[in-house]
């Protein structure tokens, strides 16, 4: 039974194998623009929006990539201009330390509670 299922899965997956992937640069532009909020549109990313602002930001990303800047440098450049609000992926700093750590602390705390409930008796 398992092996039959495996073969099916394999067949499905082989369908993908022929793909080669688009130009690295376009991928990078897409990746960066997906992580940027289009400030003048409600809840859309720069990638999703066709507003003048979003189009300009995309031009800027292309220019910065051509200049050899890293993604981080592009984000930092925009953060200075528009504030942290523009980045969807909040960087770890003094403002976001709790944001990143509270869920993890809760996870450890929960683990300890379960550990106590489970292990005491044999």
């Amino acid at each position: 039974m398992n092996s039959k299922f495996n073969i099916k899965l394999l067949l499905i997956f082989f369908l993908f194998i022929n793909y080669s992937f688009a130009d690295e640069k376009i991928k990078r532009i897409d990746k960066v623009s997906k992580n940027l909020r289009c400030l003048i549109c409600q809840g859309q990313s720069v990638y999703d929006s066709q507003s003048e602002f979003a189009l300009s930001i995309r031009d800027l990303i292309i220019k910065k990539i051509d200049e050899g800047q890293t993604d981080e440098e592009i984000y930092d450049y925009l953060k200075v201009k528009y504030g942290d609000w523009i980045i969807y992926d909040p960087k770890l700093d003094k403002n976001t330390i709790l944001l990143w750590s509270i869920p993890l602390i809760l996870f450890i705390f929960g683990g300890l509670l379960i550990f106590r409930k489970v292990i005491i008796i044999k």
Binding site: E52, F53, L55, S56, L60, K81, Y82
Partner: peptide, 13 residues
């Protein structure tokens, strides 16, 4: 022409 100077200044519209 392409809006890059406006970004440099920090404008969004």
């Amino acid at each position: 022409e392409n809006g890059l100077i406006s970004i440099e200044i920090g404008a969004y519209g």
